[in-house]
């Protein structure tokens, strides 16, 4: 499996509903990616900040996107293709 580490700040459109965050799209390098499935979510910490991680699919590629719940910064962490 080819995984590319990206680690770049991105803009994300997400729905916040009943304590659940569902990213719908994100823009990376000027291109908008529509998310077809949130396949997995998990949490960890960076220092004192809680960070939510989302595994997102656009139908072709799996992206790992994170949201720092202190700074509210979204980052595209990785992308991978089997």
């Amino acid at each position: 499996m080819d995984t590319i580490i990206i680690d770049e700040r991105i803009d994300v459109g997400a729905v916040f509903k009943k304590n659940i965050i569902k990213p719908r799209w994100f823009v990376w390098k000027g291109r908008k990616y529509a998310i077809t499935e949130v396949t997995y979510t998990w949490e960890d910490t960076q220092g004192a900040a809680r960070v939510m991680h989302f595994a997102l699919s656009d139908g072709n590629t799996l992206f790992e996107v994170s949201l720092n719940l202190t700074s509210l910064e979204w980052r595209l962490e990785k992308s991978s293709v089997v």
């Binding site: 499996m1 499935e37 396949t39 997995y40 595994a55 699919s57 799996l62 991978s80 293709v81 089997v82």
Partner: peptide
Amino acid sequence: SVEQAMNPALRGK
């Protein structure tokens, strides 16, 4: 199993 749950392309493989 967690990796397969996260990545649909890996399931059953």
